[in-house]
Computed example of a mutant assay.
Amino acid sequence: MISIEIPVVHGKYLHDVLESIRSQSYQDYEVIIVNSGSDQISDLIRQYGFKEIRKSTKLLYARYLAHMNSKGDFSLLLDETRYLGKDALLTLSSLRRDMIIIHEREVGNSIWIRQAQLDKDNIIYCNPADAIKGFALPRYFRSEILSRAFEALESNLKDKFYDVIFPDHELIYYEASKISTDVNIVKEPFIYHYGDSSILDIARKYYKYGKSIRVVKGTLYENFFSTKRKVRKICRGSLLDRVGVYGLYLVRGIPFILGKYL
């Protein structure tokens, strides 16, 4: 069985997410939702008959709560802004790998959505496997490995474990990669993402990320605060498109740095 684990705060796209799960061609799954939001979200969850944990919490701890209440052999870390293609679970269930990186398709028509998609395509199609693992993260885990990763994070972060918003996903993979190096990459986009369509939306999110990363200072994960990533290869898109991707990095990076240091 696959456990689909979803933290929710706003619920704007949750109907689409839950409907995409219910419509899967593979039906051996459970859904665990940690609701840090409203009663309306609870009402929607009840309509689908999925498991709800009602608790106001930060992102890493919400993922932990969802996983600790799961029963599946494999876990899919989903978000309220990401819905599944019809055969996503069928494909994932057939691979039997410890961890799987899944390519994504951005949903929307703004210039920033298009640049975000080009960025994702370049990561998946232009970089070698080891580099992809540095820029994209697994969403599908063997549950035993995910449990051990959470145990390590809880032990090492101590009280700060409850305060992490970003880099929740990177921290999970960091500990999971110590347990297993069996990571597969699915290049077909089985996850669809409602991304940020305006500069303001991007700036707000990445400023929040920059503030959140301060939490790891003074912990065993302090390297995440200062790590400089290698430049990813870009081989897709026209010259103008590629300039636009670097523009996206700038629009993300400036508010991130402001949040991180101010």
Rank of each mutant, 00 (worst) to 15 (best):
L18M: 00
I123T: 15
Q24C: 00
L239G: 07
P255V: 08
R54E: 12
I124Y: 00
L146I: 12
G11V: 11
K211T: 11
R114Q: 12
E154H: 10
A149E: 09
I185A: 00
Y194H: 13
S36Q: 06
I257M: 13
L137D: 10
R214Q: 15
N127R: 06
L200C: 07
S23Q: 11
R252E: 09
S147G: 05
C126R: 03
L118K: 02
T181N: 14
D28Q: 15
F74R: 03
D28T: 12
S42K: 14
L157V: 10
Q24L: 04
S20N: 08
L250F: 11
S75K: 00
Q117G: 01
Y206R: 09
K133A: 10
F74L: 01
I185Q: 03
F50C: 03
D182M: 09
V164M: 00
I113E: 10
L77A: 05
C235P: 08
L220A: 13
L153S: 14
L200E: 15
L77H: 04
Y192C: 05
V251N: 01
K260T: 09
H103C: 13
S20F: 02
R97Q: 14
H193P: 01
S147F: 08
L146C: 13
K86Y: 08
I257E: 04
Y140H: 10
Y194G: 11
Y221I: 05
S70M: 02
L250R: 15
L18D: 03
P255S: 01
S36A: 15
V8T: 08
Y174L: 11
D28K: 12
I101D: 02
G247F: 04
A152G: 03
G218V: 09
